[in-house]
């Protein structure tokens, strides 16, 4: 039955080449931990992607309860944490995933760096990777404010004060992030929008480019 549905769609749209293109590529021996255990260092990139997927999914569920305004934000997180079934697990996964993704990305960056895998012809992929790193840090910074508890507010205040010291760009960045003079209602809605729409959009675009390049060029050879 499923085969028939597939064939029906495939006859009209020729979808086989699309997924075979993703599926059909060789995994060289030197990156396969089944053959050389030390090849586990090649897992970090994949694990970063895995956690990113979990972050997107858990974040989607969090927004079902979270309310991005200063009156209700904290209350909604408190409710989510203490009343909603499995809310504590979903929020916990998003909270710890934010740290784990930084750890995995850091290890992945070090692996690529110390193996010199960023050298010609893979320069552009390295640059895109560093941009992904910055986007992730931005997601961490904006997400930290959203529960609207004490540490969130004061860490964001300090963060924006630090940004203010940068000449020219600083005040513009402050206006963009805070939405005004004080860290308040405007700031929270902006951080929410940046955390949920702007940065994830940038992240997905950059990750798409990252994966496209690695499929095009293949993984770097053994040292």
């Amino acid at each position: 039955m499923l085969q028939k549905i597939y064939d029906w769609v495939d006859e009209r749209l020729d979808i086989t080449p699309l997924w075979r293109d993703v599926a059909d590529h060789e995994v060289p021996e030197h990156v396969n931990p089944a053959h050389h255990f030390s090849a586990f260092v090649y897992c970090f990139g994949g694990l970063t992607f895995f956690i990113t997927v979990i972050q997107i999914l858990s974040g989607m569920f969090l927004t079902m309860y979270y309310v991005p305004d200063i009156v209700n934000a904290w209350e909604s997180v408190y409710y989510l944490q203490n009343e909603v079934a499995f809310g504590v697990i979903v929020r916990g996964m998003h909270h710890w995933g934010a740290s784990l993704v930084i750890v995995m990305m850091f290890l992945h960056t070090l692996r690529v760096f110390f193996q010199g895998a960023y050298k010609k012809p893979r320069e552009l992929n390295w640059v895109v990777g560093v941009l992904i790193f910055f986007v992730m840090l931005g997601l961490g910074f904006t997400g930290y404010l959203l529960p609207w508890d004490m540490k969130a507010l004061f860490a964001t205040k300090v963060g924006i004060e630090i940004a203010m010291t940068i000449p020219v760009v600083g005040p513009i960045a402050k206006t963009f992030l805070a939405g005004g003079e004080i860290i308040g209602a405007q700031t929270l809605t902006r951080f929410f929008a940046i955390h949920v729409f702007f940065l994830p959009a940038a992240l997905l675009g950059l990750m798409g480019a990252h994966f496209l390049m690695i499929r095009k060029q293949g993984i770097s050879g053994p040292l």
Binding site: Q81, V88, S99, W148, G159
Partner: peptide
């Protein structure tokens, strides 16, 4: 990890609390 360590939540933000010592997330 998620089950053993519940994700932290402090009290609701109170901008008038001047004595609060801020701390960013560990990677900053």
């Amino acid at each position: 990890l998620t089950i053993v360590h519940e994700s932290p939540l402090e009290k609701k933000a109170d901008p008038t609390d001047a004595g609060y010592i801020p701390l960013p997330d560990w990677y900053f």
